[in-house]
Design a binder for these strands. Structure first.
Lengths: 231, 231
DNA sequence: TAGATTGTTAATCGATTAACAATC
DNA sequence: TAGATTGTTAATCGATTAACAATC
């Protein structure tokens, strides 16, 4: 558990640049480690984890080392410690504050979801243009007029805006959010935001793209001479 | 428009293997080309498209060539033709038939969405365990008992199963779908399916992973010495 | 100590970009 | 024909895998 001082360099110096490919994999590690943790497992080797996750042990060790030495030779990785470290790296439990813009079917589904709270993100309110729902509550969240979006965000230090508006409205709402100091946009509008400059993180959810990829894969199945590829 | 015979090899021989990286980009091309088409544009060069999409012209030409010569030297690409070709490649408009399993908030939101029909995928029904909604209709779709899932799928040649069930139920429902001949699963349950062998396409939507990535990006913003990186 | 397993370097592989000849 | 722009090869870059010495 306690490491001697001479091996401590890595953690300090490796603040250079974590490859994008590694970052994209972190949430998946987080998911599997969380599962192992709930199963009560205490430690795991890169070899065993590689089997569970279907990736190479080499990749796991390489990935985890981008952030410093989380493991211990001859022992493996302490799951709880590793899980905590990855949570920290990802910014989970930073207590970010979010609003959902667009109270349609998808907005409502997200309002009902506990996905946010599980990652330490707090939902504050919904916003919409529909006067018939403004002033009501949806799954415990107040619904406000989109006209109040800017002021609400500045007054409540909102960090994250979830966009579930029609694509025609997406860019205008996004601009409002950014001007109100929001730092990240989770974009479900099926269009790409054109936010010039600003230091804002954008995560796009293009469900339509995913559906098309699925269609492609289905279509491609037939073309292959059936290889029986497993494991 | 008409090509002389001597240049026709590529389209025939390149059935080898399209890199996965290219396939992942196809839906995005499709989206942008569809937009250009609606704007009434007739043709476009890789150079102009590269500016709009924010990728290199080289990559565009390289990507499109995996499937054969869609362009014309000195002219560029015919947007309508290219859009059609990519649609075809992706399997859009193959008239696939889908069911949605899980009629919770997300299932309902998907039932209401026109995303399916826009890509030629037909929604046939919803399935759930909740007796209070079985027999009703949601956005015009009948809701059936999950006990009838297998038989419905075989009798109606269902191609796609959309999974919006709690993660505990995901693997069992997925198995039922596969045994009933479904060829693709669109998985919204936040777990990974463990379907041994079977020739089934799986597209996972891990919304939680995306939210975590967004948190990471927000957190990382601060750490950078503000570079003003644009264009 | 001996065995196990990481951290890390070197080798391989694949994907992106640059360059230019082919050709519309 | 001259200009434009693709198709395609070669060069670069980054990511993955293999190997093994360091070390718990």
């Amino acid at each position: 558990m306690d490491k001697n001082q001479s091996t401590q360099r890595a953690a300090e110096t490796t603040r250079t640049a974590v490859p994008a490919a590694v970052i994209k994999r972190l949430p998946r590690y987080h998911r599997f480690l969380g599962e192992l943790l709930r199963e009560g497992r205490g430690r795991i080797s890169s070899a065993e984890l590689s089997k569970i996750m279907g990736v190479t042990a080499s990749q796991i060790r390489q990935d985890l080392n981008c952030f410093g030495g989380f493991g211990q030779q001859g022992y493996g990785y302490n799951i709880e410690y590793l899980y905590g470290k990855i949570s920290e790296l990802l910014g989970v439990n930073e207590a970010y504050r979010a609003v959902i813009v667009g109270a349609g079917n998808l907005g409502k589904a997200l309002a009902a979801s506990r996905m946010f709270e599980r990652r330490g993100v707090k939902k504050l309110a919904l916003f919409d243009v529909d006067k018939s729902i403004i002033g009501t509550k949806i799954y415990g969240l107040p619904v406000y007029s989109i006209d109040d979006l800017h002021d609400f965000c500045t007054e409540n230090s909102v960090d994250i805006g979830v966009l579930t508006v029609p694509k025609e409205a997406a860019n205008s709402v996004a601009t409002t959010l950014v001007l109100a100091g929001v730092r990240g946009i989770w974009n479900y509008a099926s269009t790409e935001l054109t936010l010039g400059g600003g230091n804002v993180a954008i995560e796009n959810i293009h469900l339509g793209d995913s559906l098309m990829t699925l269609c492609y894969e289905i279509k491609s199945q037939g073309e292959m001479p059936s290889d029986g590829d497993e494991e």
